[in-house]
Structures are given as structure tokens and as C-alpha cells.
């Protein structure tokens, strides 16, 4: 009897085991932060997550999907808009971040309000200026749709949607959004070489930017005050809103620089449209305050050629394969 029990256990665990080809940690990268033991990736769950991600059914009036503000062609952000807009053209208070390498991210949102990738989708689903829905109504709606009954059945062995399953499926899709094949990565693997301008840009990057935008993820995932002047219309104090600790005032999440060519405009409020403006900010517009990052307390001096070289290096972080990956594309045609 005991032996039989063990056999069951092994067979059941194997059937729920993660499919290794869905998530591969790139060579020399740190271990992912996401805890896969509670949500092992499977093909059908990732697929359900992808369908949910692109479906405007998530919003109250079926107009806004996750992809509305996180489109694949812009490395999953909302380009051309400083502040992202949602339902009924409502304008939000922040620039939507790019969804890249989320399995390595400790907290979510510019202020780290969200502590786990699974819970992230709840915020835009509920926010009045984004999808203006609530998870209970959404799950009820999903349970009336034939396609979702099939997809939930395939993914979880039960056609009934719940909040937990819905959120976990969205996480599954998001976890697969790995960008690790930019020119930078190929140069590191000695498959390609940098131009002399890119080499100089990389050298300057390592000197001035690398502490916060640490390789290979190009972020430490920490929060920092990078010397932006406060926008008195938004009065956004960032991390302070969450921790209520004055030492967190004006600190925002350090974003990854991967695919930065595609993710304009820049900063939490999208105030800079071009990378050249970002360079100018770091060299001559830093606002001093108590919480300013120690790395920025001393003025950074760069010649205009040096700025151009850094930008040339940053463009080597563009991963076209990631942006055009068919696995991440809208599955609309497949299901209609």
C-alpha cells in the first residue's frame, strides 16, 4: 500500500512539474526571485495567461486590455504617452513600466506598492483610470465565457475560474517575458563585437551608471532618488507613499535599461521623450535633496560626444527577438 502511495505521489508531482523550456534562466544571470514552487509553469497556463493579457474583457466596459498599456512592439510599455491612459481616456498618474524580466523583480510599480507578481494585475484591473473593474466581477464574467471554460479546464483541470487561478495564469505569461538576446548579450557571449563608439559608451556606463543599473538585469531593483525636480501638479513622492518613511521621499524604482530604445518616454512621469534629455538631466539638472542618491551628489561631467557614446551603448540593449517574439504576440487570430 505504502509503495503504491509513493508511486501516486511521484506520478502526480511529475504531472505538475514545470516545463523547463518555458523558462530558462540565461547563463550567468542570478536566480529568479519569483517562487515557482507555488505556480510551476505549464504550456496551457502560460497560454491562458496570454489570452487574458490581450483580452479587453479585463476592463469594466471591455475596452482596455493589459496590452493597451503594455504593447509587445514597445517592449511591453505604453509609448508616446508620458502618463498612461485607460478606460474612457482617463489619464493616470504615472508612466507605465516595461514588462521585462519580471521573474527577477522583487517589487512592482514605481513605488514598490505590490509585493508579488501574482498580485500586480489586481491594481490595474481595479484602478478607476485603468480598467475600473474588480476581480470578483471579472471572475464572474470569465465563468460565463465558453473559451475561458476550455482554457481554464486545460490549464487547471477544472473549468471554473477563481481569482487565484486567474492571477496565477497572468503571472505565468508575464514570467516568460525574458529579454536576454540583445547585441550586448551576444557581445558578452563573444558572438559579436562592439563598435569603438559602443566600447567607449560601455566604459562610461560602467563608470557612471552601473551602480544602480547593474548588469546583467540593468537594475538593482532598489529605489532611488535620481534628482528629478518635483512636478507640482502630480506631487508624487514615490516610495514614501507606501512606507511613510521620510528617508524614502522622492525615491522610485530603478528601471531596467534593457530595450530602452523602445520604451520612451522616460522616468516615472514620462517627462523625457528622448535619451539625450535623460543624459542632460544626469549631467546638469540634478536637484539636490536629503534623499538624493549618493552616486549623484557629485556632478557627472560628460562631453556631448561622450553622451552620444553612452546612448550608442544603450541601444545595444535592444532585443528585437524579444519584441517580435511570436510566443508573446496577441493570440486574437487563433481564437476568433
Amino acid at each position: 500500500m505504502k509503495v503504491l502511495k509513493y508511486i501516486f505521489f511521484i506520478v502526480i508531482s511529475l504531472s505538475f512539474a514545470q516545463h523547463d523550456d518555458l523558462f530558462i534562466t540565461p547563463k550567468n544571470w542570478p536566480k529568479p526571485v519569483y517562487n515557482f514552487t507555488n505556480n510551476a509553469l505549464t504550456k496551457s497556463k502560460v497560454e491562458l495567461g496570454r489570452v487574458l493579457f490581450y483580452d479587453p474583457i479585463l476592463s469594466k466596459d471591455n475596452t482596455i486590455s493589459c496590452a493597451s498599456c503594455h504593447s509587445p512592439f514597445s517592449a511591453f510599455t505604453h509609448i508616446d504617452h508620458a502618463l498612461s491612459h485607460g478606460i474612457h481616456d482617463s489619464i493616470g498618474a504615472r508612466n507605465s513600466p516595461a514588462l521585462i524580466n519580471l521573474a527577477w523583480q522583487k517589487t512592482f510599480m514605481w513605488d514598490g506598492a505590490i509585493n508579488n507578481l501574482d498580485m500586480q494585475a489586481l491594481a490595474p484591473i481595479t484602478h478607476k483610470a485603468e480598467m475600473a473593474n474588480d476581480i470578483k466581477s471579472l471572475v464572474q464574467k470569465l465563468n460565463t465565457i465558453k473559451l475561458y471554460k476550455h482554457l481554464f479546464k486545460d490549464a487547471f483541470g477544472d473549468s471554473i475560474a477563481t481569482g487565484e487561478k486567474t492571477l496565477k495564469a497572468i503571472s505565468q505569461f508575464l514570467l516568460t517575458l525574458i529579454s536576454s538576446n540583445a547585441k550586448y548579450d551576444r557581445v558578452m557571449k563573444k558572438q559579436e563585437i562592439f563598435t569603438s563608439q559602443e566600447i567607449n559608451g560601455y566604459r562610461l556606463f560602467q563608470k557612471h551608471c552601473n551602480t544602480c543599473h547593474k548588469e546583467p538585469l540593468f537594475t538593482t531593483n532598489d529605489f532611488a532618488n535620481n534628482g528629478l525636480s518635483i512636478d507640482t501638479l502630480l506631487n508624487d513622492y514615490g516610495r514614501f507613499i507606501i512606507t511613510k518613511n521620510p528617508s524614502d521621499s522622492l525615491k522610485f524604482k530603478i528601471p531596467t535599461l534593457r530595450n530602452i530604445e523602445f520604451t520612451f518616454p522616460y522616468m516615472h512621469d514620462g517627462r523625457f521623450k528622448k535619451l539625450s534629455q535623460v543624459m542632460t538631466h544626469y549631467t546638469s539638472q540634478i536637484q539636490s535633496s536629503k534623499t538624493l542618491a549618493s552616486e549623484l551628489k557629485q556632478k557627472i561631467t560628460l562631453t556631448s560626444n561622450e553622451k552620444v557614446d553612452i546612448i550608442a551603448f544603450l541601444i545595444t540593449l535592444s532585443d528585437r527577438e524579444f519584441v517580435f517574439d511570436k510566443r508573446f504576440a496577441d493570440p486574437y487570430i487563433k481564437y476568433n
Binding site: N35, N38, N39, N116, L117, D118, M119, L122, I135, T162, G163, E164, K165, L167, K168, S171
Partner: peptide, 9 residues
């Protein structure tokens, strides 16, 4: 992360 039962969001 996401939980089910009484802990379901």
C-alpha cells in the same frame, strides 16, 4: 502571491 479559498482576492 495569489492564494485560493478564503484567501482568494
Amino acid at each position: 502571491g495569489a492564494m485560493g479559498g478564503d484567501l482568494d482576492p
